[in-house]
């Protein structure tokens, strides 16, 4: 209970600090918010008038207080570029990103853990060498490069999958693979080393001496012990997916939070940047929180 309260308070502090950082950073980064909204022929007066209308002429701290006040009354503000309400914009973007991010997370653990287990079980075989080499490559290759290569192979040359956009499941495959590649690679390596380490623990010998089958020892006892480090670092995997989503959604034209955020930053659309940046901070924090709760539940020492 005490730790839950502590985590909640820390999360709030983190959100406040990040909101300040985001608020200041976007305003100090230069660029002109009026360029996207007003025609190129607009006069200096027109531009100044627009700034006054949206409150950008105020001191930065005052702007921040106004912004926080509005957020707390449920008004997320409107986009400066097309005046669309952010609340209405957010639902669709969040849904799209949740589909892509969720799929990637499933791939990270759903592919990473079994591959790591196979590599550990068949260690030093050609299968292990293959899986391990692939995971090294997965960690070393930058995702934007991987995206371009996969688009070239599967969209341009083979024509099996669409190169960008959103539609059926076939549109999800390439972005999800690219987004999860590094996470899968890291999970494979962690699973492999944890399984190998636990296989040499004394308790494995005890279970063998009791006559339990190798399959049961491996899939029940060794696996359960090996999942602990994977669960404890699951928060990092969430953070990675959120961070990489900016690049991957942009490359694949996936209409989610990441793409929206990148566009908003380019256009200096302050309210949109603020909302979606904080949303990402919130998701990463939530991911870490979920990981620590999961670790507590999975570890008998902490659960009892």
């Amino acid at each position: 209970m005490k730790s839950v309260l502590k985590t909640t308070l820390l999360t709030l502090l983190l959100l406040i600090a990040s909101s300040l950082a985001v608020f200041a950073a976007i305003r100090l980064s230069g660029g002109d918010v009026t360029a996207a909204r007003l025609p190129a022929s607009a006069t200096a007066e027109d531009r100044e008038l627009f700034r006054q209308q949206v409150g950008l002429d105020q001191p930065i701290l005052r702007q921040y207080v106004t912004y926080v006040g509005e957020v707390f009354t449920g008004d997320l503000g409107n986009s400066l570029t097309n005046n669309a309400s952010i609340s209405s914009l957010a639902v669709e973007k969040i849904k799209n990103s949740a589909i892509l991010g969720g799929m990637s997370l499933v791939l990270v653990f759903g592919v990473g853990i079994p591959l790591g287990m196979i590599a550990a079980l068949k260690r030093n075989s050609w299968l292990d060498t293959g899986i391990t080499s692939f995971s090294v490559a997965g960690m070393a290759v930058p995702n934007f490069w991987l995206a371009l290569i996969l688009i070239y192979i599967f969209a341009t040359v083979l024509g099996w999958l669409p190169s960008a956009g959103q539609g059926g499941i076939e549109y999800l495959i390439l972005p999800a693979v690219v987004l999860s590649a590094e996470g899968i690679a890291l999970t494979v390596r962690m699973t492999r080393s944890a399984m190998i380490e636990n296989l040499s623990q004394d308790f494995v010998r005890t279970l063998r001496a009791a006559g339990l089958s190798e399959r049961r020892i491996y899939f029940k006892h060794v696996l359960r012990n090996s999942l602990l480090p994977i669960i404890s670092l699951a928060g990092l995997r969430v953070g990675q997916i959120v961070g990489y989503a900016l690049v991957v959604e942009t490359i694949f034209g996936w209409p989610g939070v990441g793409q929206q955020l990148v566009n908003a930053v380019l256009r200096r659309d302050y309210p949109v940047v603020q909302f979606f940046s904080l949303l990402l901070v919130f998701v990463v924090t939530l991911g870490n929180l979920a990981a620590s709760v999961g670790y507590t539940l999975a570890n008998p020492r902490l659960r009892k």
């Binding site: 623990q201 004394d202 308790f203 010998r205 005890t206 279970l207 063998r208 001496a209 009791a210 006559g211 006892h221 012990n225 008998p300 020492r301």
Partner: peptide
């Protein structure tokens, strides 16, 4: 193993699955 001939190991703390 276990049914005809069973074993008891030293260091029971590490010999039991935690």
């Amino acid at each position: 193993r276990g049914a005809e001939i069973a074993m008891v190991f030293q260091d029971p703390m590490s010999a039991l699955d935690p």
